[in-house]
Every structure is written in structure tokens, then in C-alpha cells.
Amino acid sequence: MTAAIAEAIETERPLPVEQSGGRRAALRAGLDQLARKPVFLIAVLYVVFVLVSAFWPTLFTAHGPYDTNPGSAALAPSPDHLFGTDIYGRDLWTRVLYGSPLTIKATLIALSIAVVAGLALGIVSGFFGGLTDSLLMRFVDVLLAIPGLLLALSIVTALGYGTVAVAVAVGVGIVPGFARTTRAEVLKVKTLPYVEAARAGGASWTRVLLRHILPNSWGPVAVLAVLDAGVAIIAIASLSFLGFGAAPPAAEWGTLIADGRNYLITSWWLSLLPGLFVALLVLSLNHISKTLQELTR
């Protein structure tokens, strides 16, 4: 008997007979626990706000993103212009909200690439093991040897600029880490007694993979996916900040911040407020990911 088992017995709390328990009750208990974490709720609300304001920006602003107004150029933040205005008198808050869909789209593309390719690599590698595993993991090692941003830059060089190219580049950069985590989870679950019990009960490998290994590996992988959404947002913003994003006048967050850079000394808000907007989003995603991780542990 191992120490882990002994400890588990020490902390187990079986439900009293009169309570029914079950999946719904477990879900409710989990949600209950989350609802009691105010910071987590704020983080979720902020992410929801960013998503909603990206697709219905008119709910949150009366201005248009391209409405120039020389009379109100370079105004500091005020209740009328939350983030101030740029040198053409355009409302910065509005421009940030209208820039959201581009960045969100890029993030979703990047994340889809990372999740699909990473999951596929990780599952195939962890599940089949042996030579397949060695080959795939050596490939992942090679990908990891090229620092992520540089790998992304090479892809951008080859594909040219634009939101999609940047998204693809960032997505590919995330794949190796994702593949490793998935593989580690699959390997861990694969050797557990309940998988063996299912096998002994006559279940095919396909059934074991779909019903046991995937559902039980999914937790940490999903947590990582949320975390990687934050990573992708930073990377996409960085690439568009460096000038590889969408062509003007369309403005991703990174582009807005880069544009404001030239007026830092006179109009600091042009760079810093959109930057803060992005940073808060990433921070929220990190916090959500961390809370979920603690919950699933």
C-alpha cells in the first residue's frame, strides 16, 4: 500500500446515505464554490464584457471608429471620451472596441490551431506510445528549440502580413507545449486501474480512449487552453505592435498601441490605456485558468 492511498483514506468524506449526490449535484457544488470567489467573478465578467462589446460595440459607445473631429484632437480621458481621443480627434475607446473583433478572431484561429494540432499530437503520441511517440516527441522538441516568437516571425515572413498570417504563426507557436501537456495527461490516465478494469471488462481501445482517457485528460488540457488564450492575445498584440498585423485603417489592439507610441510624451493615454485594456483581459484569463486548475485538483 502506498502512502498516497493511506492519505486519501484519511481525507475521504463519503456523502451521507440520505443525500443523492450524482453528477448534477457535483456540478452545482462546483458552481457554488466558484460563485463564492469574487475575483473570479470579476474576471469572468470582464472577459464577457470584452466579448459582448466586440460584437455589439454600439451598446457601449455612441461614437464611430473613424469619425474624425479636428476640434477635439488629443483630448485627455474624460467621461465623454473614456480613453481620450487621438490626434485626428477619433474616440480611442470606440477604436479599441471596434478593434476587438480582429484580435478575438485571430486569437480564436490561433487557439483552434493549437488545440486541434496539439490535442492530435498529444493523444496520438501518448496513446500509441512506442516509435510513434518517440518520433512525434522529437519533432515537438525541435519545435520547442525555436523560441516561440521567432518561430512565429519566420511564419509571418513566409506568409506575409495580416491578421490570419499572425494568427496562424501564433497558433503554431503554441502547439508544442499543448501537445506535451496532452500527452502527459493521456499517459497518466492510460495506466490508471480503471482503464485496465475497462479493458478487462471487454472494452475496446476506441471505447477506452473516448469514454475514459479523453474525459479524464480533458481537465488540465482545458485549463491550459484558457491560459493559452491569454498567451495568444499577448503574442498577437505583440506581432501587430511590431507592424505585422492588419493593414490600416483597421486597427487591432497592438496597432493602436504602436500608433500611440509616437505621442507618448504629450498624450500618454493613446498607448497606455489600450495596453491596460489588453493586460486586464490577459490577467482575467490567467486568473480564470488558475481558479479552474485549483478547482479540478
Binding site: 490508471l192 475514459h212 479524464n216
Partner: peptide
């Protein structure tokens, strides 16, 4: 059939008792 040593790892944590018990029936 097999009964494993460790009661804490022998059942899939995502399966209800019903699913665990009937799994061999479903498999066959």
C-alpha cells in the same frame, strides 16, 4: 474478471456508479 487493489483509482471519477457497473454489459 478483475478487482483491483486501489479503491481510489479503480473507478473512473467521471462515471456514475450506474455507468461503471454496466460498462462491461455495454462493451459486450
Amino acid at each position: 474478471q478483475l478487482v483491483h487493489q486501489d479503491p481510489f483509482a479503480t473507478l473512473d471519477p467521471k462515471f456514475t456508479v450506474r455507468q461503471s457497473v454496466t460498462e462491461p454489459l455495454v462493451s459486450f
